[in-house]
Amino acid sequence: MKTPFKLLALMLITSVMLNAQQHKIHTESFTADRNTTAIFNLDNITVALEESTDGKLHVDYIMEFDGYSKTEINTFLEEIKVEVGKFDNHITLSASSKNKISIETYEFKTTDAITVNQSFFESKKDSVSRKSLDTLRLEIEQNNHSIQGNSLKYINDRFKKVDKNGKVTNFKKGGIKMMRSRFTIKIPPYLKLTVNAKESGLYIRQHLRNELTGTLIGGTLKTKEISNPYNKLKIENATMEALAIDGGDFEFINLKNSKIGSIQNTKITSEFSKLEIGEIQKNVTITDFNSEYYFYNWAKDFKRFNLYSEYSKIHFFYPKLDYSFKVIGNNTKNFIGKYKIEMQPTKKGEKFNMMERKSQGNGEFSGEIFFDIIHGIIYSYDDSFKKTNN
């Protein structure tokens, strides 16, 4: 009878130790109706948004620690401030931290050297090729889930230990300090939401139909589909990845390596950004200054696409169905494979018709593409056409 008792005691001690590593920061719920509005002010915080199914707004914030002392944990917790309140059917949430809080943070506890897994971090090839909509969406989804699940596997896929004899080994539990932020806010689908975030992470885990406005300066926005004609977002010095955008006005300033799966009924104003778009659908207009865009695919009925740009670099993959294409502007280069066509500047800088492709009248017509581009570069890729010898 002694052995089972010792085993049970050990299990209880272990359970207490594990529970001691989990700390509840804030838990609260609020009723909401179709007239309720909310504003989230975030600073150095990572938040996940999910849909609420019971008509209430739920705030649930838990921090988890592995390998940290009580003193270290208390120091982290003292730096986090969360305040939530409701007044006159308006909910205000403010969350901040002195140091940036990510979903998971790692600190290596080793005197050995650390090496990078080059196969994971290998640089991309210089060549540019068309990505399908499914391929780009898969890249976005993989990035969104890259640190969920087995944390040790995540680390060992990227880093290894190297001892003084040059032996390379994986990290083991206890060899890494891990801090996890589990900050989830569930909102009803009719809530009007404003988010003002600085150096924060905003993860939208489900299709968000709410009216969403606000700014994100620094940090990351990763989302599934967001669809509302009244959306209005400004994203600056950040990274954005979205499986789909339907509706709204977006301002992008200095976006880094960002990706949108599909986009429609949307206006974008951008500058100094880099953005890949998997598929352009109906009614999209982009006004840009000095950014780099990749237009990989076009919907069967994208109707009309407008680009107004200056000093932009455009990677343009032709639609696979019939279309029309008109380019006006000044002082722009067009690279088609190995060939370069230069549109020389006019003396007075007037715009002129640089190139035009009319509908061929063959098969289904997908839409009109219009470029108004000054001092730009267009890279045209004809991989959708098969050359035949007559």
Rank of each mutant, 00 (worst) to 15 (best):
L212A: 03
T213E: 11
G214C: 05
G214N: 03
G214P: 09
T215I: 10
L216A: 05
G219V: 02
G219H: 07
L221M: 07
K222P: 00
K222E: 04
T223N: 06
K224Q: 15
K224G: 03
N228R: 09
P229A: 10
P229G: 10
N231R: 12
K232E: 12
K232F: 08
I235K: 01
I235R: 01
I235W: 00
E236G: 05
T239D: 02
T239E: 07
T239R: 09
T239W: 03
M240W: 05
A242F: 05
L243D: 12
I245H: 02
D246P: 00
G247N: 12
F250P: 00
E251R: 14
F252S: 01
F252I: 06
F252P: 01
N254P: 05
N254D: 13
L255F: 02
K256C: 03
K256F: 03
K256I: 12
S258L: 11
S258N: 09
K259R: 15
K259T: 06
K259E: 06
I260L: 14
S262Y: 01
S262I: 12
S262G: 11
S262R: 12
I263Y: 00
Q264I: 04
N265M: 07
N265F: 10
T266L: 02
I268N: 04
I268F: 09
E271K: 15
F272A: 08
S273H: 07
S273Y: 09
K274A: 08
L275G: 05
E276C: 03
I277K: 06
Q281Y: 04
Q281N: 14
K282H: 11
K282M: 04
K282L: 00
K282E: 11
N283G: 00
N283P: 02
V284G: 00
V284W: 02
V284H: 02
V284S: 01
I286R: 03
I286E: 03
T287S: 13
D288T: 15
D288N: 14
F289N: 15
N290S: 15
N290L: 13
S291T: 11
E292S: 14
F295G: 02
Y296F: 14
Y296V: 04
A299S: 15
K300D: 14
R304Q: 13
R304E: 07
R304W: 06
F305D: 02
Y308H: 11
S309A: 15
S309V: 08
S309K: 13
S309E: 06
E310F: 03
Y311T: 11
I314T: 10
I314Y: 04
H315I: 08
H315D: 12
P319S: 06
P319I: 06
P319E: 03
K320D: 07
L321T: 13
L321A: 13
D322E: 10
Y323W: 11
Y323R: 11
S324Q: 11
S324D: 10
F325L: 15
K326P: 00
K326N: 10
V327T: 04
I328P: 00
I328D: 09
N331W: 10
T332M: 10
K333A: 08
N334W: 12
N334A: 11
F335S: 10
G337R: 14
G337Q: 14
K338C: 08
I341M: 13
I341D: 08
I341L: 09
E342D: 15
E342C: 01
Q344A: 14
P345R: 14
P345C: 09
P345A: 13
